[in-house]
Amino acid sequence: MTTTRTRVAIIGGGPAGLLLALILHRAGIESVVLERKSRDYVLSRIRAGVLEQGTTDLLRTVGLGARMDREGLVHDGFDIAWRGEMLHVDLRELTGGKTVTVYGQTEVTHDLYDALDEACVPVIHEVEDVTPQDITGSAPFVTYRTRDGEQRLECDFIAGCDGFHGVCRQAIPAASIETFERVYPFAWLGVLTRTPPIQDELIYANHSRGFALCSLRNPQLSRYYIQCDADDDVANWPDERFFDELQARLPSAVAGNLVRGPSIEKSLAPLRSFVAEPMRYGRMFLAGDAAHIVPPTGAKGLNLAVSDIHYLSRALIAHYLDKDDGLLDAYSETALARVWKAERFSWWFTSMIHRFEEHGAFSQRIQEAEFDYLADSEAAQTSLAENYVGLPF
């Protein structure tokens, strides 16, 4: 077994792990990132692309703003379609100038890789059998296997950024962690197509046939979603059927703008809300999807991972540079306070905009009253807008 040492062992090479490595490097703190998949695989994953104001501000702070500001699409608002009508939510006006930016998670990951390559921060791909060891002791380490054989990475701390199905949360004894979960009775069927978007801003649509979302990645790359059964199959949805269903769920004012084209990616994503707490066990800290999942309705997944990394990097920097562990000790409580607010918003928006067949007539009337209140109340729209652009870190 080959033994190496670093200060922070980061398990998971998605945006959370890569961003933590970059911020720590900027502060002079060494780390090593361990990723189960190949770099090409990581960069091929299609994920959300709506960045909160706080996320874009942080990316600029660490030197990742140039391409995002050049190629990202700043959105001042979005539309909600209901009963054939369109309600425009003016984010900039309602939040005193804040916006969101459409910039794909894949592009953020590209930028992070480029910055880490330039800084010579080690990111080790295609590692197997990753196992956090002695997490509660004073000298934790991680064992893993590469093509070169068994490896041991000694460290001061472990950052578990390895996603919902990763090993880090599973390494915590059941008696030391509590989980909270709601599984929704439907999924999102998503299609990516090289066609102009239906309009410049997002449309969230509620319809008797189910929810639909019209999104985009750039002016020639559209991302569309429709609500479907949780046990449905992508094979049941050839392109023609998908676009027919999408068009049927949109108001006539915009449905005619839909440009159809062959799908270049099609996927089905079940929806769930999930939180594990605390987000620390011994010298291991959870961040991102390893600790929490939100339904994609509010576009909070990547943004919550970034806020976790903001808190965790700040705490690690205080430990190493200021010899102060106060922020490390408060990390879980601080991160979870923001996590639960985002969970609340994502649950509320999901509940308001989707079709729940099993809820009956009373719940349907409540849902309609919710929209009517939102349409008539600037205060309600302001609450929606300030949560959508992201609560402050």
Rank of each mutant, 00 (worst) to 15 (best):
H75R: 04
H75L: 07
H75K: 13
H75I: 01
D76H: 08
D76S: 09
G77E: 02
F78A: 00
D79R: 14
D79E: 10
I80C: 04
A81Y: 02
A81Q: 01
G84T: 03
E85H: 08
E85P: 03
E85V: 00
E85A: 08
M86P: 02
M86D: 00
M86A: 01
M86Q: 03
L87G: 00
L87I: 00
L87P: 00
H88M: 00
D90N: 08
L91S: 03
R92L: 08
R92S: 15
R92M: 09
E93Q: 12
L94K: 01
L94Q: 05
L94S: 01
T95V: 06
T95S: 10
T95Q: 09
G96P: 14
G97E: 13
G97K: 04
G97Y: 07
G97T: 12
G97H: 08
G97M: 07
K98F: 09
K98Y: 13
K98G: 08
T99Q: 02
V100Q: 08
T101S: 03
V102Y: 09
V102Q: 14
V102N: 07
Y103I: 11
Y103T: 14
Y103D: 12
Y103S: 10
G104D: 15
G104V: 09
Q105D: 15
Q105H: 12
Q105W: 13
T106C: 13
T106H: 15
V108D: 04
V108C: 05
V108Q: 01
V108R: 02
V108K: 04
V108S: 05
T109H: 11
T109C: 01
D111W: 03
D111E: 04
D111Q: 04
D111H: 03
Y113W: 09
Y113Q: 06
Y113R: 02
A115V: 01
A115L: 06
A115P: 07
L116T: 01
L116R: 07
L116H: 05
D117P: 09
E118R: 14
A119R: 14
C120K: 14
V121N: 12
V121G: 13
P122H: 06
V123S: 09
V123I: 08
V123F: 11
I124R: 08
I124D: 04
I124M: 10
H125Q: 11
H125T: 01
H125F: 11
E126R: 15
E126C: 15
V127D: 10
V127S: 05
